[in-house]
Write a protein that binds this DNA or RNA. Structure first.
Lengths: 159, 159
DNA sequence: GCTACATCCTGTACCGACTACAGAATCAAG
DNA sequence: CTTGATTCTGTAGTCGGTACAGGATGTAGC
């Protein structure tokens, strides 16, 4: 048995995130020491690794929850899992396709303008006018890669 | 001159989002009628279309802001714009590459299990054990396609 | 025992980029 | 004049965490 810091190191999941998962019922509340410290075992490592990996595969939390439920219900069919994975695969493929459209367009934009002044630049125009295949565009899908992960503490908000 | 609903229809941007953009300074506060209704013109349509398109290309809002600033500063070089677009292209390419890894793995998982019972299913195991190239994994990148866009009003939260 | 210092606890607020809703005012058509 | 659509402001909720305050423990060295 080990405390949350060890679990965090073993799984690569943030301590705060582990507590968050507990709060939201993704993992069970573990036993505690007399001084209220959480105690985890190897089972917790496995479950948390599973969650992490599923999240990495792009499953959203409700789906992860469903997978976990299937995992612990012996009469569930493997087909159920396959179904979830297929849905996920479909979503991933859609995302890839859309990103490739963006890739092409960004390339076009970049090539279009080498280094002149704004007056000669078609980019703004291109961005304003051009039409993307965007009928079902989800806001969620638009997030940029923002690697603010472990790049140190930043607190610009409340200073 | 037209009101916000018309602007919304012409640009495909949600009314609430337009007001949000105004609040956060992405667009200027427009003139109003005597009864405080916002009045927009074709310029607003262009600017908002630009914003929308840039967002669709995956630019985050601060970057969109930068693009807009460049747009209205005549001495800015086209190269600045190109730089932003290149950064965005790089991010998009990274995302594609990562999603393709997921695609492969999901496919593998799906093929691995046709329709037996959980007992015979390797998926959970695969998800628990397998290691992804995830050293710099950003939480932001994990969001699933959640097409809850215009699929009607839903209010499960406070009912 | 005492002092550091690391780790852990709870609780709350914050992030981005919106979205949703309440409750009131105003508008346009019949 | 009434009805229904549109708009207004303001606030709170969403998702999936992250960050921090302020306190309580644990552990090591002296």
């Amino acid at each position: 048995m080990f405390t949350i810091g060890t679990l965090s190191k073993r799984t690569g999941v943030n301590i705060e995130t582990i507590r968050y998962y507990e709060r939201t019922g993704l993992i069970d509340a573990p036993p505690r020491t007399a001084s209220k410290r959480r105690l985890f075992d190897d089972n917790a490592v496995r479950r948390l690794s599973f969650i992490r990996h599923a999240r990495e595969l792009g499953f959203d939390v409700p789906t992860v929850r469903a997978l976990l439920a299937l995992q612990s219900s012996p009469e569930a069919s493997c087909g159920d899992v396959t179904r979830l994975a297929s849905a996920q695969l479909h979503a991933v493929e859609t995302r890839i396709a859309r990103l490739q459209v963006l890739e092409v367009e960004l390339n076009r934009i970049i090539r279009h303008c080498a280094g002149g002044k704004m007056a000669d630049c078609r980019i703004i125009e291109a961005l304003t006018a051009h039409e993307l295949g965007d009928r079902h565009l989800s806001r969620k899908s638009l997030s940029t890669f923002t690697p603010h992960a472990k790049s140190g503490p930043k607190r610009p908000g409340r200073a």
